[in-house]
Structure formats: C-alpha cells, structure tokens
Amino acid sequence: MDFDLPESAVAVRDGVAAVAAKYDHAYWSACEDEHRFPSEAWRDLADGGWIGLCVPEEHGGGGQGMLELAVACETLAASGGTAAIFLYILTPGFGAMTLARHGTEEQQRRILPGIAEGRTQFCMALTEPDAGSNAVEIRTSARLDGDELVVRGQKIWISGVENAEWMLVVARTTPAAEAREKLGSRTAGFTLLLVDVKAALADGTLSYTPIPKLGGNVVTSSQVFLDDVRVPLSHVVGPVDGGFPVLWDVLNPERILAAAGGVGGAEAALRLAADYASTREVFGRPIGANQAIQFPLAQLKAKTELARLMTYQAAWLFDQGRPCGNETNIAKLTAAQVAWESANQAFQTFGGMAYSKEYPVERLFRDSRIGKNIPVAEELILAHIGTQMLNLPRSY
C-alpha cells in the first residue's frame, strides 16, 4: 500500500496553498460579516486552474479527479476559508464533476470551458421543505410538453443561486405512486436537469428568497421557487426517469468534499488554538504547557489525521470507479465531528477572548457546526453504517 499523495495532488495542495496565503483570516471574516462572495479569491483560484481541476483537458481543465479536488478543498479550508468550501462543492463538484461523468457532449462543450475559466458557476436544487434528507419524497415535478420539460416546485437551502449561471435540479418526471407501480421502484421516476438560472430569473419563472443564517454567509442560501420553468430535453443530465443513480454520483462527491472541508476546518482551528496556547501566558508560563490545554488539542489532531485518511480513501475509490458509499459516509461523519470538536476546543482555549470578533475563532465555531447537519445529518450516516455495514434492522 502506498500512502504517499500522487504528484498531481501534491501540486494541487501546494498551488492552492500559494493562492490561499494571499487571503488571511481577516479577509474571510470580512467576507462573512459583509455577506460577500469572495470574488477575489475565486478569481485567483480560477486563474491558477484550481477551480477547473476536474474539467477534462479537452475543455480547458486539468483533467484531474476527486482526490485532487478534495485536496484543494481541504487546503482552502485549512487556510481559514472554512465556509469557502462551497466554492468547491457548488461549481467543481455539482457542475464540473457531474457533467464530466454524465453530461452529453453538447452540454460539456457548452458549459465546461466556462467553469474551467471561472466564468460559470453552479448550484444544485434537491432539498425541499417537506423532503429534506428523505430525497425520495420530493414533489417538484417536470412534465413533458413537446421537446421541453416544464418544472414546478419549491426547493430550500439552495446555496449559491445569486451567482449561478446553471442550476442542477432534481425533479420527478413520474409521480411516486406511478413510479412504484409502473417502474417497479420507489427511486424510479427521477430526472436531473439543467436550468439556465439567468434566463429563468429574467422571464420570472424562477425566483429565490435568501434565508438569514448563523454562518457560511460567503454564499447565500435560499428558498427557490420554480413556476413552470421550461427546460429543453437537451438539458437533461442522464436518462429521463432514471436519474437516481446519477444523483448518487453527485451526492458522493458532495460528501467527500464536505469531509475534506471538515478536515481543513479542523486544521485551521487547531493551528489557531496551538499558536495562541504557545504565546498566551498565565501564572508565568504558556497555557499550552498545561496538560488540560495540550492534551485535548493533541487528541483532536490525532482524530483529524484519521478523518483525512478516510477522506482520501473515499476520494481514491470514487476515482477508481469502485463502490465508495460506506467510506464516503464515514469520512463525512468523522470529518464533521472533528471540525466541530476542534473549533469548540479552540474556543475554550482562547477563553473569554474567543467571544470577541477580534479573533476568527467565533467564525470557525459558527462555520463548523453546520457540518454535522449538512449535506446529510450524522444520524442518517449512523443509520447507514448500522444497516449497511453491521446488518442491523432498518429504522426508517
């Protein structure tokens, strides 16, 4: 077994780190406080080729895989851009990776060069008010009308709509009851399609309302309303009525990138805590010399390394075209937990000063908490591990 990162991933790590070094904690805190997209960092990453990593070379990208993308996401988060992992989840993950694997030649020619150049951004619309983690129960419909699908429904917690040119929408082209009866499966009848966001906003068939939220405000999360959005059949990704396997090939990368962001977020918090504990003196010595401070941080560093290994394994399996659901879920679970625990321990290490916006600990504290809930709640991951890996009875 070879645990060395391939040269391609090392180059990505070093390249993204060089760009990220230009954007310190103060930059990311300012973007957060101003609810501002980090356009300067986005432009620098795109110009360096670090956004188009998984765009095939023939479309202007780097032709890399999920491992390199995960390393890029981790590195950006570790630099302090803990909410900036959305830069990698939304466009390279939902957009480039999905189209590179499942898009038609026409879709790839039309969209991928723009992603590689940083001109084109993506978002994805799956979650609904009454169908959060239970994606099978989504109600957004897409009915056939000539050579178009007419999409109607409501989505929630859709991040990045305000900057997106394209939205990957999951809709039902066959109602649930009919799909079970005629197609033989509760996961049949789903279709993935590409909505031209700017055009739909312009004609009034798509609208969105931002949701005020605790953190992660470098991107907006919104309720999205689709009121008879017309989508050409040429914008369908994968087969009509057979989109669920394609959807899993979107969700696994999302979870891997979320795990990578969690690992990077843990590193960012631990670095802040270790630096502070090394210089902050109480009772005549650095507080980091006290085992009550040092040992919890050391324990979390060990957990971070374990989460990193699991994330890299999941990414490697995905790139090999092998089943990776178990590894992906374990990576996401452990990385989200250690990111939150590290931010929480950093908060404790800073003492009362952690509550001040003078330090970025409060931002990392807020950014890290949501990872335990998205893109999938840890309770559902534990249910997956229990039923799929331990063969325990289903509870849902």
Rank of each mutant, 00 (worst) to 15 (best):
L233C: 08
R143P: 07
T82K: 00
F347S: 11
G261Y: 00
K182V: 14
S133D: 14
P129M: 07
F86M: 11
L53K: 01
I111A: 05
E165W: 01
D203V: 06
W166R: 12
V16R: 03
G351R: 08
Y359E: 15
L226V: 02
M1G: 15
F244D: 09
N217H: 08
M97W: 11
R180P: 02
E32C: 07
G114Q: 01
A78W: 06
G215F: 05
I330H: 13
S159T: 15
S141V: 15
T98M: 14
Q154S: 11
F86S: 14
A269L: 05
Y355F: 15
A354S: 15
V169Q: 07
E281Q: 11
A100M: 06
G238P: 03
F295S: 14
G261E: 04
E7C: 07
V55D: 06
T91H: 00
G95W: 01
E358N: 14
G160M: 06
K213S: 10
I156A: 09
F225Q: 13
L233R: 11
P393R: 03
T387P: 10
G146K: 10
G204T: 01
E148I: 00
L309T: 12
G265Q: 10
F365E: 12
R139N: 09
G215H: 10
P393H: 06
L149K: 03
A269I: 05
K372R: 15
I370Q: 15
Y276Q: 08
D44Q: 06
P296V: 02
I89P: 02
D33H: 06
V338W: 00
E165V: 03
Q299H: 11
G265C: 09
A116N: 02
W340V: 11
K213I: 09
T328P: 05
I330T: 11
G81R: 00
T98W: 12
G114S: 02
